[in-house]
């Protein structure tokens, strides 16, 4: 479980202040972990008042609050619920399950993958997220060329999520150079929430 804000042990209104700051800098979903009823209710109310969707789950005697900002540009984030715009941008997720693009000659497949990720950095409308699974995690660890492209994408605001189980399996956990680690639950949730998935 990814925790973006750990607000355990903080008294109100601190958890709300942290949530407000986070919301000002991102329009992507994020998780807030709180350890008391007051913070759970206040953070949920605050997020809803800003037009976000809120999902609360129990998490080891604490509350995990998932905040899904209205899918709009960050400029509109400060406005209130009336501004939950429907002219939203489609959220596209690229789901990469291999370090080669297509099946064929290995050298060609490697080159194609490099060039695919490079192209992603060049297009006007990059995907919202890239999920790396199975040998796909090599693209964010061992493969220096693709690491560079993924870093460039991250700079542009693309969220890179690497499967934690896969990193462990290939012994690459220590070598992650870009993106963050996600578990199956989180990856599945974001795939389901996506408007469009490009599966590779």
């Amino acid at each position: 479980m990814l925790i973006d804000i750990d607000a355990r042990g903080l008294a109100c209104p601190r958890p709300v202040i942290l949530t407000k700051e986070k919301l000002a800098e991102t329009n992507k979903p994020f998780n807030v972990l709180v350890d008391n009823e007051a913070a759970r209710e206040n953070v949920s109310r605050f997020a809803k008042s800003r037009g976000c969707d809120v999902e609360v789950s129990d998490h080891e005697n604490c509350f995990l609050i998932k905040i899904i900002p209205p899918s709009s540009s960050s400029e509109t984030m400060e406005t209130t619920k009336s501004a939950s715009l429907n002219e939203t941008k489609k959220s596209t997720v690229i789901f990469i399950k291999t370090d080669e693009l297509g099946t064929g000659d290995k050298r060609l497949s490697d080159t194609l993958m490099k060039s695919f990720l490079f192209a992603c950095t060049e297009i006007d409308d990059p995907p919202e997220k890239i999920v790396l699974m199975n040998t796909g995690v090599r693209l964010a660890t061992e493969n220096e060329d693709t690491v560079e492209h993924l870093k460039a994408l991250e700079q542009k605001g693309v969220e890179i999520i690497c499967c934690g189980t896969c990193l462990d399996f290939y012994g690459l956990g220590e070598k992650l150079k870009v993106g963050k680690i996600g578990n199956m639950y989180e990856i599945l949730s974001l795939l389901i929430a996506a408007d469009k998935i490009l599966s590779i």
């Binding site: 709300v16 007051a38 109310r45 605050f46």
Partner: peptide, 12 residues
């Protein structure tokens, strides 16, 4: 402000 999550802990 109550709707915006400004409830003090004592309220709970």
């Amino acid at each position: 402000l109550a709707e915006e999550g400004m409830l003090p802990a004592g309220l709970f």
